[in-house]
């Protein structure tokens, strides 16, 4: 009785040590007393199948898209998977979006000139979080609710976000959305495998971290029929690096020094 409570408490130490160092499970000395028959080790670990990288990146081959209709399934795949609400009323004001389409002059305002070729001018471009190498949003966040993972993904901890929206001001790409209201009523069909958000927190594309963890590529990549490549930017052999080697690519607002990890082949 008493022992069980105490052991539970002390386990945390072990848990955390494991989590941080990844070392072998730590024995809980107290737990051991009088429970010799029981295995006292436990372990927290990554899935064996999990995809890993040093810096995940994405290359979008805009040549493979013709119209907004081509982008629709990608966006739908992402938004339905992640329970992103469709807020119709006040579309612009309270909109939540992880990945969306916009015109060249908006996605690339610093590149757009007066005279653009016909195709580029009318082609819808995908916009999403760039998972910058040098993310201003992470710098801005006062609680580490937005943080950069070891694999380069800029992630949101919805449990910790206080909703100050400093990250939204900091993001030069407009990639972040805020839950101005409870999103649930605006989700057509909930995916129980992924949490919804609550009002008052910021959200954005997570490069499908939950899918990478089980060995799957991001939903949009999967739905793109090969138009989007995804891989480790630091691995010279990776598909994305191959593409970058062989194609001219552009990135959004490169001049700001944020080093976006999303590249566009035009």
């Amino acid at each position: 009785m008493m022992q069980s409570s105490r052991r539970n408490f002390l386990k945390i130490a072990g848990l955390s040590a494991v989590g941080i160092s990844g070392a072998k499970p730590v024995l809980d000395a107290f737990a051991a007393e009088g429970h010799g028959d029981e295995r006292t080790e436990f372990e927290i670990r990554k899935n064996e199948k999990a995809l890993t990288a040093q810096q995940w990146g994405m290359v979008i081959d805009t040549r493979k898209f013709e119209s907004a209709a081509d982008l629709e399934p990608l966006i739908e795949a992402c938004h339905s998977l992640h329970n992103v609400p469709h807020i119709d009323e006040n579309k612009v004001r309270h909109e939540v979006k992880w990945i969306w389409e916009d015109e060249y002059k908006h996605v690339f305002p610093t590149l757009a000139g007066k005279f653009v070729d016909e195709r580029t001018e009318h082609l819808p471009f995908l916009a999403l979080c760039n998972h910058c190498e040098n993310p201003p949003c992470v710098r801005a966040c006062p609680t580490k609710a937005t943080f950069k993972r070891e694999d380069g993904i800029v992630l949101m901890d919805f449990h910790r976000c206080i909703g100050c929206r400093f990250c939204m001001a900091a993001c030069p790409y407009g990639s972040r959305s805020f839950n101005f209201k409870d999103p649930r009523p605006f989700i057509k069909e909930r995916n129980p495998e992924f949490p919804t958000r609550m009002k008052g927190v910021v959200e954005k594309c997570n490069f499908c971290a939950e899918r990478l963890a089980v060995g799957k590529k991001p939903a949009c990549v999967e739905a793109s029929n090969g138009a989007i490549a995804f891989g480790d930017m630091n691995d010279p052999e990776s598909e994305v690096r191959e593409l970058l080697k062989s194609n001219y690519t552009i990135r959004r607002k490169k001049g700001l020094g944020t080093e976006p990890a999303v590249y566009y082949i035009v």
């Binding site: 989590g19 295995r39 436990f42 372990e43 927290i44 999990a50 901890d157 971290a209 963890a213």
Partner: peptide
């Protein structure tokens, strides 16, 4: 969320 570890192996 913060470490990306998703598996728990219990004492058994």
């Amino acid at each position: 969320v913060r470490e990306g570890s998703r598996e728990y192996v219990n004492t058994k």
